[in-house]
Design a protein around this nucleic acid. Structure first.
Length: 865
RNA sequence: GCCGGAGUGGCGAAAUUGGUAUACGCACCAGACUCAAAAUCUGGCGGGCUUUGCGCCCAUGACGGUUCGAGUCCGUCCUCCGGCACCA
């Protein structure tokens, strides 16, 4: 073999070999402990980006580690291949979405293979293939049976110009993303999944995953589910049999209510409407229109409303309260009606001030008056029989009074809404429903699945779903009565596909069920899931929901699908903005001058010297700061790219791509390469074992080797993947500083070198598998690490032990000297050594002292006076 | 506004979970090798003082506190990042 490190050559060689031998193929083996390492499946855009590289490098490193530790590691990949971009490509370029998607998958698969990620490719799945989405439909029908899928009228964003529905993102700011036209909300029947039925479980089961999931993700989910405990209270409408129910978390403030405020679409408003004056009706319409606009985030809307002239009776005080329609009350939360308590709620306060409504304080802080609105707990005043009670007690008593009197009860409300899955799109799993004139909505029988997408459809980008323009698709017969009927032409949200894909990996060819119960029982739950924080709520909440449904169907026995979640930070790039040209420029066009310290003093444009602003931003075409993984692999090799990505930052941090950093990774690999080749022959000829007498050099090297093994194992178990690289570099440096030449090495030295090399290669394999495999083959004369069945090295605590450790000696907490002692030296001896120290003597002489000794750690001498 | 998280050299970051702050890498400086460059190797690299004694002082966003001892724990504040946002 060539003694020069040529990454691309060995990488291709090992990728080919892994592929031929099926190195990463696994199957269920009950005798072996399993480890499921999962990365979020990519959308097949056609190009891998650095974020993917980071994601998969992390996953592969952990897979390698666990595999070398003897686990049966499953490490699969697939494609989230339904979704908008394919349909856009069809509209713009006239290509078939299927062909476009398959081509992209082929390209990206090649890229992943060039990175050398160890996937079990035999388990690959893709959402757009009928054998996969058949089971999206299967699950939908199951949920229909269970009453978890239902159809109701719901609002969608609608662009009247493009005649199409838009997602919230596409309608951001109230304008169509394509034509800029004002977006409307229109109502149409859509399919929903009852995730709200599982709200309480989704919340309480978080206890099970608390240890393994990042705090911020759990918090985000908790907020999203938004449990809020309060009470419902019914207010009778004056001069009518009707009533209005409000939800409140502060029933204790009810004596301070000055009005009932309802959403403009509240049923009571429609009941009143005929009797209302034109002015009032017009104002209500205005509020309806305002609420129908997509929410413009970050803009605070001024509260407004109108008095309907009707009144309601406060069941506690008997007071008559005006009924208002308010723009700040939403029909979609709680009961769509609130009791307005301006003294104790900031929104009600704002509303009352604007319209001059009375403000009556009924809760006071323990001592002192508070400024209104005062929304904390306190003691009730002016609240009838409840005056004098603390808020907490009052809440309980008032709720139970309401219940016994029949006008209310304690109640819990969630913010979580049911999941609308209907999309007026082509490139998604068809919703398996048939609409029959006589029988109504009928689920397609299981045996008729999949409901396949047609080969193609008119992709115009306007009007309804393209499927609604394909009669061969929608014209069908009712599965029940056989009469002519029409198929549902909406497809499912792509988030459905990603809810259960990692169960399908376990049994990807199964035609009769989404997956085998046995396979899932062995492999699940996922031991480690790695992906972007952007999926903290949507995907990760949906998939938790799906798992609970699967449990209720009887497919699995656990509640939570993912034991540990790792959210990786973004990969960002340095961008250069020229003020003169008013555009981004490439790094090559920029001249950076540094001060002696290395600090950047100024950045200027090469040709004109004009100033350039440096920024670290998300990579993007327009910013000219994107980095193409293929280019990097071609230039430095995949091992170097992966090593750098792992080393540059802790996984959850943002990672700034810097080419000089990757050069450091290459340098390290080359250093290892050179060292191994320098010693290869000497080491290969030696048969020395550890029993021979050690020299000082070999003792030191063995110690470092074993310490490194210990340290890296600990880091991996703690979920730290950047510091092991530093440890590898330290070991490599120690090898480099060994100070003995192969020609003159003794047996013990050869043994120590061989041990250090073999350990280093195994420890390095998770980061730079190709190089490790190649060098392992060179040193051991085998076919590489995987083929030789090598295991992760074990450390020997005896060898790793320091002969002598440095123990700092402090005086009053300040470092003054150091002493040296064997580890485990007892406290009195350490104290004696410290006090005998010359420098310490200067501080302690003739003083009253107290000595604190921390074994193996330090000695602190407290000198009084 | 509410809820989270984070502030350590010129930069990315370490710190055995309360025990020698700045490991490892990048950048930078100096030297060796070289006709030269690259590569490689050697040394230096938080700031200040310095009688050059590896000696002292100051440094982990700021100010307090607890402790023999605080980057780490507690309190107050400042800054930045992320999420949610009229949620009753």
């Amino acid at each position: 073999m060539d003694e020069k490190y040529f990454a691309q050559k060995i990488e291709r060689k090992w990728q080919q070999r892994w592929n031929e031998t099926g190195a990463f193929k696994v199957s269920k083996e009950d005798s072996k402990q399993k480890f499921y390492c999962l990365e979020m499946l990519p959308y097949p855009s056609g190009r891998l980006h650095m974020g993917h590289v980071r994601n998969y490098s992390i996953g592969d490193a952990i897979s390698w580690y666990k595999r070398l530790k003897g686990f049966n590691v499953i490490h699969p990949i697939g494609w989230d291949s339904f979704g908008q971009p394919a349909e856009q490509a069809a509209i713009k370029q006239g290509v078939n979405p299927r062909d476009w998607t398959e081509d992209n998958i082929d390209q990206m698969r090649k890229q992943l293979q060039a990175l050398g990620i160890g996937y079990d490719w035999s388990r690959e799945v893709a959402a757009h293939r009928p054998d996969y989405y058949k089971f999206d439909q299967w699950f939908f029908l199951k949920m229909l049976e269970m009453g978890l899928a239902y159809r109701k009228d719901s609002e969608v964003n609608w662009c009247p110009k493009c005649e199409t529905t838009l997602s919230n993102e596409q309608a951001s700011g109230g304008a169509c993303w394509r034509c800029g036209f004002q977006v409307e909300k229109s109502t149409r029947p859509q399919w929903f999944l009852k995730i709200t039925e599982y709200a309480e479980q989704l919340l309480s089961d978080m206890d099970e995953i608390e240890e393994g999931w990042p705090e911020n993700v759990l918090t985000m989910q908790r907020n999203w589910i938004g449990r809020s405990d309060g009470a419902r209270v019914r207010f009778a409408v004056g001069g009518s049999d009707s009533s209005i129910e409000v939800f409140t978390t502060r029933i204790d403030t009810i004596y301070g209510a000055n009005a009932i405020v309802v959403a403009p679409n509240h049923p009571i408003v429609f009941e009143f409407e005929d009797g209302l004056s034109e002015d009032i009706k017009a104002k209500i319409e205005e509020i309806r229109a305002e609420q129908a606009l997509p929410v413009d985030y970050g803009v605070e809307v001024e509260k407004s409303g109108v008095d309907t002239g009707k009144t309601a009776i406060n069941p506690f005080s008997g007071e008559e309260l005006p009924i208002w329609v308010g723009n700040y009350v939403l029909m979609s939360y709680g009961t769509g009606a609130v009791m307005s308590v301006p003294a104790h709620d900031s929104r009600d306060h704002e509303f009352a001030v604007r319209y001059g409504l009375p403000i009556k304080a009924v809760v006071k802080p323990e001592n002192d008056d508070a400024e209104l609105p005062f929304s904390e707990y306190g003691v009730l005043v002016d609240s009838g029989d409840f005056s004098g009670l603390a808020s907490k007690d009052a809440k309980e008593r008032m709720a139970s009074l309401a219940e016994s009197e029949g006008f209310g009860a304690a109640s819990t409300t969630f913010r979580l809404r049911d999941w609308g899955i209907s999309r007026q799109r082509f490139w998604g799993a068809p919703i398996p429903i048939v609409y029959c004139q006589t029988c109504g909505e009928i689920g397609v029988p299981f045996e008729d699945l999949p409901v396949e997408l047609p080969e193609s459809a008119p992709f115009t980008g306007v009007g309804e779903s393209p499927l609604a323009k394909v009669p061969e698709f929608y014209e069908t017969n009712c599965p029940r009565c056989g009469e002519a009927a029409r198929r549902e032409t909406d497809t499912m949200d792509t988030f459905v596909d990603s809810c259960w894909y990692y169960f399908r990996y376990l049994d990807p060819k199964n035609e009769n069920a989404p997956f085998s119960v046995d396979e899932a029982a062995y492999w699940m739950p996922v031991d480690l899931y790695i992906g972007g924080i952007d999926h903290a709520v949507m995907h990760l909440l949906y998939t938790r929901f799906w798992t609970k449904v699967m449990r209720d169907i009887g497919l699995v026995e656990f509640h939570e699908p993912v034991t540990r979640l790792l959210t990786q930070g973004m990969v960002v790039g340095e961008s250069f903005y020229s003020k003169e040209r008013e555009c981004y420029v490439t790094a090559d066009e920029v001249e950076i001058s540094r001060a002696a310290s290395g600090k950047i003093e100024k950045a200027t444009l090469r040709e004109t010297g004009g100033p350039v602003r440096l920024a670290v931003e998300k990579m993007g075409k327009s910013k000219l700061n994107g980095v193409d993984p293929d280019d990097m692999i071609a230039k430095y090799g995949s091992d170097a790219v992966r090593l750098f990505v792992m080393f540059a930052a802790p996984v959850e941090n943002e990672l700034v791509w810097q080419e000089s950093g990757i050069e450091g990774a290459v340098r390290f690999l080359q250093r290892v390469w050179r060292f191994v080749f320098k010693w290869r022959d000497a080491v290969a000829d030696s048969s020395a074992d550890s029993s021979v007498e050690e020299s000082a050099a070999s003792r030191k090297l063995r110690q470092k080797t074993h310490q490194t093994i210990r340290k890296i194992s600990e880091s991996f178990e703690n979920g730290q993947f950047n510091t092991p690289v530093a440890s590898l570099m330290e070991l490599s440096n120690a090898m480099h500083d060994f100070g003995v030449e192969p020609e003159s090495a003794t047996d013990s030295e050869l043994f120590a070198v061989k041990e250090s090399i073999k350990s280093l290669l195994l420890l390095m394999a998770p980061y730079a598998p190709h190089t490790s495999e190649e060098l392992w083959a060179e040193v051991t004369g085998t076919d590489g690490i995987l083929a030789s069945g090598a295991r992760y090295p074990e450390f020997d605590p005896e060898i790793a032990k320091d002969d002598e450790i440095e123990i700092p000696v402090q005086v009053n907490g300040k470092l003054r000297s150091r002493i040296y002692a064997a580890p485990g030296t007892d406290n009195s001896e350490l104290e004696r050594l410290a006090l005998a120290d010359e420098k310490i003597g200067e501080y302690t002489e003739g003083k009253e002292i107290r000595v604190i000794v921390v074994p193996n750690r330090l000695v602190n001498i407290v000198v009084k006076g």
